[in-house]
Design a protein around this nucleic acid. Structure first.
Lengths: 196, 196
DNA sequence: AACTCCAACTCTTACGTATGGGTGAGAGTT
DNA sequence: AACTCTCACCCATACGTAAGAGTTGGAGTT
């Protein structure tokens, strides 16, 4: 099959003029001489899979800046930041649908400052949520620490029942006296639940 | 199917024999004269739905201590604590599958100390995960803070473009001078992604 | 320079997966 | 009447994975 050796969008390097500014601001102009990326390259650069990027496109979160003559998706290098941004918001616990709303809000806002204001509101909400999440996880951390500590003391109570290679194999052993004497109330929830 | 006489594990409190261990481990003795609960009662008492309890059973997390002659599930009152415990671990971010591993580890360990040792291992792993998660979220928290700060300065840069009801409606406005002069690199990822 | 080859890449379509249950349906139990 | 039983299909999310076919770009050849 003959191919006219032209990646479709391929403008030679021209003199940098006022357009330069434009490309800096709304750097989505596919006219920039930057090398466009194929979906696989974008995937590698952004740490996502090709499938994920396709998925984002299906949802309307991301669109190729061009297509090769063979219908390959082509992306402006700035798409890397975009995909990373999506990933971060997702990490923050936002669903892709929510992220889409942000994108749409941004795109349809009547003014730039308006858009930024709305973005701030969303981010502030997320910040609170994130802090709550951290608090929650910190609570879990404490519980785990307490439970581990409890189990540790169990190990070192009466008999030298160690975790390390012991001699007992197969036959059940009786719990140590300490365990039997210990108050039930002293058990961390994470231990009490299973022992109960 | 007819259950062969014995309620599985049923031993009164004896000397610390091997069976003692079992009963301590799987302290589910349905032999106590306590009133057994139907699934609906257990559900109400534990704050879960009947379906959820059925689900836990499907996964192997929880088993009725008996069945009525009409095949109704009957639970020992201690099951309430068990279900709450499951709920708690789940609330704290463990999947039911992970909780199941804890249960199985506990139930199949050859000895009490062994069980505790394995439980410790699981809890330690979870602890690490949790800390990693916290670190991750903390990083995101910083990013959000930075992004919000950035957007704040945007608002107070050049023109008095406020969030409050402005006069401009409909026609997009150009970004303020400050925004144009600002370095792209200065933009936090959470902002750069959408602006780009 | 033009042509041929080929591995690697990408296309679209579409069903599969894991989670934690929800929601009946039809029938039996208390 | 209120409860419970056992199927068994349904939801939403965020992709995974496979299939069958077309595309790209460079190496090698003429």
């Amino acid at each position: 099959m003959p191919k006219s050796s032209e990646p479709i969008v391929h403008l030679p390097i021209l003199a940098p003029r006022e357009d330069e500014v434009r490309s800096l601001l709304a750097a989505k102009l596919p006219a920039s001489p930057d090398k466009l990326l194929q979906v696989g390259e974008l995937a590698r650069a952004s740490g996502k899979t090709v499938r994920a990027i396709h998925h984002y496109e299906e949802l309307g979160l991301l669109k190729p800046d061009a297509r090769s003559k063979g219908r390959f998706r082509l992306y402006d290098p700035t798409a890397v930041a975009r995909v990373r941004w999506i990933g971060k918001l997702h990490d923050l616990g936002m669903s892709l649908a929510e992220i889409l709303k942000v994108v749409e809000t941004w795109g349809t806002a009547p003014s730039a400052s308006r858009a930024m204001a709305e973005l701030r509101i969303i981010y502030r909400g997320k910040l609170e949520e994130t802090r709550a999440q951290i608090a929650h996880l910190t609570a879990l951390e404490k519980e785990l620490e307490a439970s581990i500590a409890y189990l540790d003391t169990c190990d070192s109570c009466g008999e030298p029942v160690t975790v390390a290679p012991t001699e007992d194999e197969g036959e059940p052993e009786a719990p140590c006296g300490g365990c039997q004497l210990r108050e039930r109330d002293a058990e961390p929830d994470l231990v009490a639940g299973i022992v109960a």
